[in-house]
Design a protein around this nucleic acid. Structure first.
Lengths: 348, 348
DNA sequence: TGCCCCAAGGTAAACGGTTTCCGTCCACTC
DNA sequence: GAGTGGACGGAAACCGTTTACCTTGGGGCA
């Protein structure tokens, strides 16, 4: 595009092809193609001349034609079922960060793992699009069948998960257990002894990891979660609320609750409010994710922060670099605790 | 130009082509093509037979090959700069709802209108991708230069905005003034007389519309906003907070504040909290957008609900149908007030 | 010199559809 | 029996790249 200020009479762009470049450079279009893709066997002087022409005429090869010849589109898909807008948007941005400068575009593919024709839909999508690659955040990432289909279709992919469930060059690990352990230590140091946990659903690996990490952190202080102080939530506001009602109705109620994510932590806030309990004076609350609400609500929520955008970036980078990318590439991310206002020493 | 080389082309798959279908149907591939695309001049029985075969063998034409022949990709782009994750995600879903069943995919293109090379980037994107269409939510939708570039590239597009700024078949109107007027009436009926407004930035058309609608609503009750009761915010939590501090520090402070969006309304909550004012006893607050936070925070926020996903759906539909779509197609959406807990009669 | 080999680059055929430009066949109608 | 129009075929061109395969020229080496 020209940067000149807007003229009303815009010109029709004389679409320039690889042939034009070749003619002007005095070489065959094959050589131009070589320069564009893989300039290994082209003399430096020839390559420079062609590159100069490409730049001068602002030429870029037609993605559709390339895709046809390559038998592979220049599309990277993000396939996800995570419902959190914050998560989704940040992940998208991260992947796009990694795609910037490449000739790939990001197509999004939300889905519902419970839909009856789930695998058909995704399978068809994968088959048809001949994707350049796919990024799978949780919980789609935990679905081995999807990974299998992608492998089948010869489509590179990267899975983002809290546990190692594929080859290293296809994985970004989020060490969620670490963040959960930090939360546990924080509560233990504050002096809490009666601590409860609202965990996420069985079907999410992350909920296991968060629980595990939390237990590990507590055990460092000789503490442990009693079985009936672990209740199952569904990672939603409503379930968080209900679980909290249940926990706080006990005769000997806990002085601190670790919610499996921020949404449920907000549910705990609501339950506490209704019961006339003050956060953090009567009950300390810790969340997980650090969604924007966490720093908007009163009291500001102590939670575990995951750098979602960075994770997306790593995943995208890993995808673009392929198995033979730099060996030292980072492939894991460690969430950290952010202490705000919702935790305090228990009153005795 | 990094194309992620080193990926060998896909290995051979028993991929079925249009020729196979044609052979099996006993027709020429041209007729199959007719069925796939247009089917106007194909006899019903032939068409049915071909369709059955297509379904049986699960054939779908290669998008890349079609794109090359059509000189147009099967990609619909959503180009946006709106920072609200909730808005983005819902809009994406809405557009995808409309794209379902078509052969189009959704590619996303966030951008920053303040970047120095903004128009270059977008222009290049539009030129290269030969998009099937584009959806422009605010505030990108308000940029005539972008619309011009799209028209130039012969790319259909739909703009979503609160005012009519393009031909009807390229517009989805969000009648935000209506929702704002409802908010005004609600406050007026409660008995508020001293009302303030934290408006959005000058550069957003929506901020004008919301102000205008609010004023219209007030005037029905013989009320009006004094000039210094209208302050400029930036649609962010922080600016909402600062504006509220300013308004609430006045000797004769307002009894109600209409914030231009929910983010700013949360800022008002914070300011009120700091000043020891209770919502809604001391100050009523109304937001706009109905983000999820609005129904998570205490007190639940009275706000104006926009069905973003529906809007996205309409935009996508309009795009797919084109100018010759059904005449009676709905092309406007009216946001409605949702009364919750943050508004009450003023204390005298 | 003769031979081999490699770097550098060319040629033509894919890639998998759509389109153009006729034609043909056939059933109806007048 | 001629005219008409709908349904469909055939061949080739085309879309703009990449790729399989081949040529060419020149240098190293025995």
């Amino acid at each position: 595009m020209d940067t000149g200020q807007g003229r009303p009479g815009a010109r029709r762009k004389p679409k320039i092809t690889i042939n034009d470049i070749a003619r002007m450079a005095g070489v065959s279009k094959k050589t131009v193609s070589r320069v564009i893709n893989d300039a290994t066997t082209v003399k430096a002087s020839t390559r420079d001349k062609i590159k100069a022409l490409i730049k001068e005429y602002d030429f870029s090869p037609d993605p559709q034609a390339r895709a046809l010849a390559f038998r592979r589109s220049f599309l990277v898909a993000m396939i996800y079922d995570n419902p959190s807008p914050q998560y989704i948007v940040n992940m998208q941005r991260g992947i796009l960060d990694a795609l910037a400068g490449s000739s790939c575009q990001l197509v999004i593919r939300p889905c519902d793992r419970n839909a009856p024709d789930f695998y058909d839909m995704i399978g068809e999508f994968i088959e048809q699009q001949r994707l350049f690659g796919a990024v799978l955040p949780p919980s789609v990432s935990e679905d081995d069948h999807i990974a299998e289909m992608l492998k089948e279709a010869d489509c590179p992919y990267v899975r983002i998960a809290s546990v190692e469930l594929d080859e290293p060059h296809r994985m970004i690990r989020t060490r969620e257990a670490h963040g959960a352990a930090e939360a546990a230590r924080h509560l233990a140091r504050l002096g809490h002894r009666r601590i409860a946990h609202i965990r996420g659903p069985e079907s999410f690996r992350s909920s296991h990891e968060r629980l595990r990490g939390f237990q590990d952190g507590l055990s460092e202080f000789g503490l442990h979660l009693k079985d009936d102080d672990i209740v199952f939530g569904g990672y939603t506001y409503e379930t968080g609320y209900e679980c909290a009602r249940q926990l706080l109705a006990k005769p000997e109620r806990p002085t601190a609750i670790f919610a499996g994510n921020d949404e449920m932590a907000l549910g705990v806030y609501k339950a506490a409010r209704e019961l006339g309990l003050s956060v953090p004076a009567d009950i300390s609350v810790v969340g997980f994710d650090d969604t924007p609400i966490a720093s908007r609500i009163a009291p500001y929520l102590t939670t575990v922060h995951s750098p979602i955008r960075d994770i997306g970036y790593l995943a995208g980078k890993l995808l673009m670099d392929g198995p033979k990318g730099p060996k030292g590439a980072m492939t894991s991310i460690t969430p950290e605790l952010v202490v705000r206002e919702s935790t305090a020493a228990p009153a005795f």
